[in-house]
């Protein structure tokens, strides 16, 4: 429990805990843990002012492996717990670690409402498209038809698309990254930490035991250039290997994949605007799925919107300013009091 002096910069190692990490060997969670520990000191976070909150699931063991304050909650409720933490002490940097089952099945309601309120918390969705801790049932993000222990004939559930839902819930910051791209993950985490308001980050995370390779198209060297498109603000959507550059162009209201060259220039392509007032572009991007489209990686949307916590404390400040600090005497006197004197009491 040593306290570093303020002058010594914290390192990734400082953000770890002494607990043995118990994820399966090869789990994508290790990479995320490492990226988070590395990114936090770079955002100026301190151990004592950082809180990790989680629900239930493999990913939700995350807080135990951090050297910060942590609360391992119950299934699906991390967003609500985190809201309570942030509203109790707005000085804290609050992170939620959740999974596709925790955050979009049992905790779907809290996810929607945390995002719409724009509480200044950072939500990391570890999406592995499977229930891992309960040993391999399909999750709300599993593709239709997926064969799992609970869907031996193939899942007949249509999947939910977390980024689309987050945008639909009025998210002010939405991003996607992948466990295999540490550098990109680190950049996205820092952006999420810096954003004021709810930051929603979907991380494609491999479960090597129950759903191995679910995102291999997006992570393997042979395919990733063709199957992912990295979003950059004010830049055209360009992807593909150097010898066969492609882009995304708008055809009416629909995106289409086009080859660059042969009369198609970068200027003809769709330009990304993460700060667009309307969420339509971000939503359109969120609907681009493999294999019809390359899947966008990066920041879909980052807009400024007053946060719930800031507004709450502003109302409190104004109440203090107008009414002065409340006293018990004022509280108890509702303006309709009456007095029984000693004389009356004994008459």
């Amino acid at each position: 429990m040593s306290v570093k002096s303020q002058d010594t910069p914290l390192t990734a190692k400082d953000f770890g805990s002494d607990q043995e990490v118990r994820w399966c060997p090869g789990c994508g969670d290790y990479a995320i843990l490492s990226a988070v520990k590395k990114a936090l000191p770079e955002t100026g976070a301190t151990l004592e002012n950082t809180v990790f909150v989680s629900g239930i699931g493999c990913s939700s063991r995350f807080p135990y492996y951090m050297g910060t304050y942590g609360l391992h909650g119950i299934h699906g409720r991390a967003m609500a717990i985190a809201t309570g933490v942030k509203l109790a002490n707005p000085e804290l940097q609050v992170w939620v670690v959740t999974g596709d089952g925790d955050g979009f099945s049992i905790g779907g309601n809290h996810m929607l409402h945390a995002i719409r309120r724009n509480v200044d918390i950072n939500i990391l969705l570890f999406n592995n498209e499977i229930y891992g801790l309960t040993k391999g049932q399909y999750s709300p993000t599993s593709p239709k038809g997926q064969r799992t222990k609970s869907s031996p004939y193939g899942s007949i559930d249509y999947p939910i698309h977390p980024i689309s839902v987050a945008i639909g819930a009025e998210a002010s910051f939405v991003a996607r990254t992948v466990d295999r791209n540490l550098k990109h993950m680190g950049e996205v985490l820092k952006r999420a930490a810096e954003h004021k308001g709810t930051s929603f980050v979907e991380i494609y995370q491999n479960c090597p035991i129950f759903n191995d390779g679910a995102f291999s198209y997006a992570t393997e060297k042979e395919t990733k250039d063709d199957t992912t498109v990295y979003l950059e603000h004010n830049k055209p959507l360009v992807f593909g290997p150097d010898n066969a550059r492609k882009g995304i162009r708008l055809n009416g209201l629909d995106p289409e994949v086009v080859d660059l060259g042969d009369g198609v220039r970068e200027d003809d392509l769709l330009f990304h605007d993460e700060a667009a007032e309307q969420p339509s572009l971000a939503y359109l991007l969120s609907r681009m799925h493999h294999p019809q489209f390359p899947e966008p990686i990066g920041v879909f949307r980052a807009v400024d919107r007053p946060t719930y916590d800031a507004m709450l404390f502003e109302q409190e400040r104004q109440a203090f300013e107008k009414q002065g600090e409340g006293t018990l005497e004022k509280l108890f006197d509702d303006g309709e009091t009456w007095t029984v004197t000693e004389e009356e009491a004994h008459s």
Binding site: A80, I81, G84, A88, N89, H110, H113, L312, A319
Partner: peptide, 25 residues
Amino acid sequence: NYKVRTFQAEDEISAMTAIIGASFA
């Protein structure tokens, strides 16, 4: 002005778990 912070939660479970977070903090 008594530092009373009310949070109208999205459901009962949210209200319950939010106070766990607030108590922790």
